[in-house]
Design a protein around this nucleic acid. Structure first.
Lengths: 245, 245
DNA sequence: CGTGAAGTTGATGCTTCTCAAGCGAAGTGG
DNA sequence: CCACTTCGCTTGAGAAGCATCAACTTCACG
């Protein structure tokens, strides 16, 4: 890495293209493993973009060209199956990486849609790979991140294979809460999702979600405030799911 | 890495503890990304062990101490769920790494049982991490391996959520065949599995597997030779599964 | 307000699981 | 070497769980 990318010529913040050093995720995302020269390069090369709620940001089976980081916002990542049926496999938020599933692929294996107004920082895959190859520590931590993703994916695999619908809906609520929780309290899900979307996380239908949410409400486990779902009794939800790890 | 671990003092082959340079997987496993000094260290530190068919080699929720490599043999990797019900998440063979799901964990998240008489090379996690941290290229390729595992796991997640039992059984057969295929021909599964085990891959019950195999046989798609399953019409099986990627 | 989208709820029927009986192959012990 | 046991596999019947469909209600938004 040469010295041309010094602090003096770093990209000027202009709303979207903020300086990585000013990024809200500077300390919590992969950015924290980046060396100053990495950040200089990223600052210089990244292209940030704003997407509205509901807008698609990644398309399955299209050429992998960029890796994204979520500057702010929420995104659902899903795979399309039979008859266009969608299975949500990940809920991502501020600081998360997006599109990394395409890193060793020609085509993206997933699609992604914004769940809220979102700002993304896009980096060409080549640039990202360059950084990775010059920063072993970053590569090591990205490896551990993949290992973690694999861990959760395999739990999900087992759960979809073995859980009843009631268990799957309860598990979905806990997963959503875990993905977007605001505070330590086990209450708001932190996002508004349609019954259909919850069904696409749980692996069932919107009607079943509706019925089971009504059950949970009757049992005093959750509360329905308009479109918002509040978890009143987190322990009981976990009890329904039974197995945690 | 100092020079004490030179070729001269490399561990003497003694049946199980063969020299890595003589390993059948020398060119096809992660070993190919190892530098000579890495291999010297591994040669010196590894402890190989022989396990019989049916013997358990990894236990969920036990302390992670070792990473294994399969010198020869076949292994099923599974997670335990409700009522001890098992979900097979991986079929591993000669040259594959085993226990890597524990790399960033205190406890192994999976169990593993040998499907055939198997020889394993065990390496202390610390030793493996040492090698990883001194060999960025290896770390990079292990990262890509995890990315690949994640890719397949997420396809599995979607399939379990959306497939009918018939589709799941067909998919299981193709996966088994892919894991253990001997030649390019689409015929033998390359392993003998019980109906129960196939059910634990497919995410259904042994009775459903039995019935669907009988159907496939009636339709001329497969042939049942004693305990062996032969795939006669691979394309039709893929047709049943429908979606491939 | 009016319109369309999203959510609710109950009825219906299909799919899948469970249970049980029968079969055959493999292994054990007299 | 033959009965006996055991285990895995097969098959059918019954029950349960779940998806689908349809009618209705509620909500959001112009």
């Amino acid at each position: 890495m040469d010295n041309l990318l010094s602090k003096e010529i770093r990209v000027k913040p202009n709303g979207l293209n903020i300086d990585c050093y000013e990024c809200p995720s500077h300390h919590c995302s992969l950015l924290k493993y980046c060396l100053p020269e990495n950040i200089d390069l990223i600052n210089n090369r990244k292209r940030c973009m704003s997407v509205k709620k509901g807008q698609q940001v990644l398309y399955e089976r299209t050429l992998v060209d960029k890796i994204f980081f979520i500057q702010t916002g929420k995104v659902k990542v899903y795979k399309t199956g039979i008859n266009g049926k969608q299975q949500i496999i990940r809920l991502s938020k501020t600081g998360d990486i997006l599109g990394h599933r395409g890193l060793n692929r020609k085509l993206y294996p997933i699609s992604a849609i914004a769940l809220s107004d979102t700002i993304l920082c896009g980096l060409e895959v080549n640039d990202f790979v360059n950084v990775l190859q010059t920063n072993p520590n970053l590569a090591y931590h990205l490896m551990m991140f993949y290992a973690d993703e694999l861990y959760y994916s395999e739990i999900k695999t087992r759960n979809l294979a073995q859980f009843s619908v009631r268990e799957k809906v309860a598990d979905a609520l806990l997963n959503i809460q875990e993905s977007f929780k605001m505070s330590n309290e086990c209450e708001s899900l932190g996002v508004i999702l349609s019954r259909q979307e919850i069904a696409e996380i749980a692996g069932t239908t919107k009607e079943q979600v509706s019925k089971n949410l009504a059950d949970f409400k009757d049992e005093g486990i959750i509360q329905l405030n308009g479109k918002e779902i509040l978890i009143l009794d987190c322990e009981r939800l976990k009890g329904i799911v039974g197995i945690s790890e």
